[in-house]
Structure formats: C-alpha cells, structure tokens
C-alpha cells in the first residue's frame, strides 16, 4: 500500500474521526480528537488492512498556544507508516494513555508528562525519571520555561 492508497483507505473508513493534515511531509499525518484517540488507535491496530502493530515514537510539542502530541505508528507486516496528531489546550492538557494498546507507549507518555506537563489519564506509573528527584522548576521543554541558572545561547 502506498501513501495515496493509504490516504484513500483511511479517509473512507475513518473519515469521521481522522482528519487529514497537510503539514506532514513524506508520511501521512492525521489529526484526531483527544476523546477519540484510544478507540481509533485500537481500531488501527486491529484493522486487518492496516495492522499498526509497531509504536515508533511519541513526541510532545508546545506551540505556545496549544500542546500537541504526535504518535508515530508503523506496521511491520504491511510496511506502512502513519502519524497521528492530538491537539490539546494550553490550559490543563490531558490525554488518554494508549499503553493498553502498545505497552511501548508507557515510557514515552511518562516522558511527555515530565517534560511538557501533559497529564496522562490511566497511566500506571506517572513518576519522574529523567530529571533529578528534587526538581521543582516546572516543565523544561515548554517554550516559555526559564530558570535562574539557565543560560541562553546568544541570539543568532
């Protein structure tokens, strides 16, 4: 299945939940509503045409107006790739955990919570692990984050 066919397939079968986003270069990018995330992911994994059995990566992003969580999925059997983006509000971002579908997501979600402050619902172990234990300076990957001993690179 190439990208065109995949896009057509997803739009016909998942059109109500996934909306195409043309920001994605090279691979397909779809947006999904935070409330639908888990059900859609479950379907994507079990759909016999897609079989997204492989969880590549999860990254958070902060655009200062909103947060984004981007799930990169792949299928080892069908050799296809797909990105899914969830858009979250800047106040109280919350997203549901997908670790029941892909156990691999566990640490990625934990990391996203730690560095971006995006809360994960139904996560079994939401504890600090990258920053040191006494860390109390907030969420360092946010764009507006600052601290007294944080030295910025001189402007280019």
């Amino acid at each position: 299945m190439n990208n065109e066919e995949l896009k057509a397939y997803i739009e016909s079968h998942y059109g109500s939940q996934l909306t195409y986003n043309e920001a994605g270069k090279y691979d397909l990018l779809f947006e999904v509503d935070a409330s639908n995330l888990v059900t859609v992911c479950e379907k994507l994994k079990n759909d016999s045409e897609l079989l997204f059995d492989y969880f590549c990566n999860l990254s958070g992003a902060d655009t200062t107006e909103r947060f984004e969580a981007i799930y990169n999925l792949a299928s080892t059997k069908k050799k296809i790739r797909l990105d899914i983006k969830v858009i979250l509000p800047h106040e109280n971002p919350v997203v549901n955990s997908v670790q029941t579908i892909w156990p691999a997501a566990n640490w990625y979600e934990r990391e996203m919570w730690e560095l971006y402050g995006i809360h994960i619902n139904n996560h079994d172990n939401l504890t600090r692990f990258l920053l040191h234990d006494e860390w109390d300076e907030g969420f360092p990957m946010r764009k507006d984050w600052d601290a007294p001993d944080f030295i910025r690179f001189p402007d280019l």
Binding site: A23, G24, K25, Y26, D27, L29, C56, N57, I70, N72, R81, D83
Partner: peptide
C-alpha cells in the same frame, strides 16, 4: 518549508 516529518 514549514512542515513536519518523522524520519527513521
């Protein structure tokens, strides 16, 4: 150009 990609 503006856009995003996951490259592996």
């Amino acid at each position: 150009a503006a856009g995003e990609t996951y490259t592996r």
